[in-house]
């Protein structure tokens, strides 16, 4: 049995990272895990983009006397990925800062709890009673 070409492994790996990140974002119960999942998703997308410009045996696309005339990898995806990485780092730092603020205010980073507290806060600011339904389970109905 011959091993599959390296491209399959790389593309498969990139797509697996994307799938992993998406699954993490959808299923995570903790906001910190969501932020990590976001990082994995971005890594997958970046990897796929780098692969789009990959050329077997190519060198870095920088013109120096030594590289003149050699095959080079495509610089456009690399520039785009570089931009995406920088943006990604900034956004993740911002997400962590916001998560810290949320944790300071609510004492939890559980997705459902944060959402519940946020909606209760918004309702209270608007002067609304908490939303209830007579179809709720008896334990969740306010007495």
């Amino acid at each position: 049995m011959t091993p599959p070409p390296i491209e399959f492994l790389l593309y498969g790996g990139a797509l697996a990272l994307v799938a992993l990140g998406l699954a993490g974002l959808v299923m995570a119960r903790h906001l910190f895990r969501s932020i990590l999942a976001l990082g994995i998703l971005e890594a997958g997308a970046n990897l796929l983009l780098v692969l789009a410009g990959y050329r077997a045996g190519g060198v870095a696309p920088i013109l120096t006397p030594g590289t003149l005339g050699q095959p080079m990898v495509d610089p456009v995806p690399q520039a785009l990925v570089l931009t995406a990485i920088v943006i990604g780092v900034g956004v993740q730092a911002l997400a962590l800062a916001l998560a810290l603020r949320v944790h300071q205010a609510y004492g939890t980073l559980d997705v459902a709890e944060v959402r519940g507290r946020m909606e209760a806060d918004t309702d209270a600011a608007a002067g609304l009673e908490p939303e209830t339904s007579r179809d709720l389970p008896a334990v969740e109905r306010p007495s």
Binding site: L31, A95, L98, A105, R117
Partner: peptide, 11 residues
Amino acid sequence: PAAQAAALRYL
């Protein structure tokens, strides 16, 4: 706090 939480979820 509600705005911070909304910003994080939006982000």
